[in-house]
């Protein structure tokens, strides 16, 4: 149980760090997360099942998701706020309908069973311990890369889009391009997260990529604190506990499922009422430290 929960936390952290780039830093409310998660999961699962090495397959899953993200970004570039949210939501549902109906590739509602566990350079990660070890390394890698980006001038540019697109344009910033990169980056990590999920659970079907999972990811980002990667990890830890613990209380599966949904939707509403910016806020850049590492965590 410990390994299972921790592995889930890591998978969701990686996915939500990607989502945080779009939602927290760039300020766009994307409901397409389940689609990218699913694209990554199906791509990687199908590739590995046809003999492609594990590492190449998960990266391919990420890249395919990023390509879809880029296209989605191109189409939605003019949209703001609610419209962007709805367009991404429609995109996610369309993607899921493709998962359901393109039975030749995805086997539709039957799902893909028997997805192999990871194997790198001949070493098969079959135990949960080995698994956890591998995924922790991946999480650290993702965290280092994202932190590098969000702390750089690129990250600051993302924030200007969130704060005031018009003003950023007036300063000569190419907002459309930056926004696209942000969505594609977010989609990439979403795809990688999906791939990791597929290889851990070893079975996927379209019902794993419904809007509910998107909402769950959004709550992780919001609860932890938008624009703060450590907050996202904290959010993943909390929400996985909230979601998975009812399963160990000996309730019937259907009741447990609706109970967990009830709990996390209540958390979402309460959070918005008490702390709309999440538990950990964003970190400021302070002048004394110039652009040195180790910014102090402050609540927004």
């Amino acid at each position: 149980m410990f390994y299972h929960l921790t592995i889930l936390m890591i998978i969701y952290s990686i996915t939500c760090i990607g989502l945080n780039i779009v939602v927290g830093y760039t300020g766009f409310f994307s409901f397409a997360r389940a689609a990218f998660f699913g694209i990554g999961a199906y791509t990687s699962a199908l590739l590995v099942m046809s003999g492609v090495p594990f590492l190449i397959a998960i990266i391919a899953g990420g890249i395919l998701a990023a390509i879809f993200g880029w296209i989605l970004g191109l189409i939605t570039v003019e949209m703001t706020g609610d419209y962007f949210a709805l367009a991404t939501f429609a995109f996610a549902e369309m993607t899921r309908q493709v998962f359901i109906n393109w039975t030749g590739l995805t086997r539709g509602p039957l799902g893909l069973p028997g997805i192999p566990r990871p194997e790198i350079f001949g070493f098969r990660f079959s135990t949960n311990q080995a698994y956890l070890f591998l995924y922790i390394i991946l999480l650290i890698l993702v965290l280092i890369i994202t932190e590098m980006y969000v702390k750089s001038p690129f990250g600051r540019l993302l924030k200007t889009i969130r704060e005031d697109e018009t003003a950023a344009q007036s300063l000569g910033k190419n907002i459309a391009k930056t926004k696209n990169i942000s969505i594609a980056m977010g989609a990439f990590f979403g795809g990688v997260g999906g791939a990791l999920y597929a290889h851990y659970i070893t079975y996927i079907d379209p019902s794993a990529f419904v809007l509910h999972i998107t909402i769950f990811f959004l709550i992780i980002v919001i609860a932890g604190g938008m624009g703060n990667n450590y907050g996202t990890i904290l959010g993943a830890v909390m929400l996985v506990l909230v979601r998975e613990l009812p399963r160990y209380l000996g309730l019937s599966p259907a009741f447990a499922a609706s109970l967990q949904q009830m709990v996390y939707s209540s958390i979402l509403v309460i959070l918005m009422l008490v702390r709309p910016r999440g538990l950990l806020g964003e970190r400021k850049l302070l002048s004394e430290q110039s652009s040195e590492e180790g910014g102090q965590i402050r609540n927004a």
Binding site: P153, K159, T160, R162, E163, D164, A167, L171, L285
Partner: peptide, 16 residues
């Protein structure tokens, strides 16, 4: 006025 409200004064300037 269109400043970047949730960024510090310094950040507002160095992003420009």
């Amino acid at each position: 006025t269109r400043i970047f409200p949730e960024m510090t004064v310094l950040e507002n300037l160095i992003v420009a």
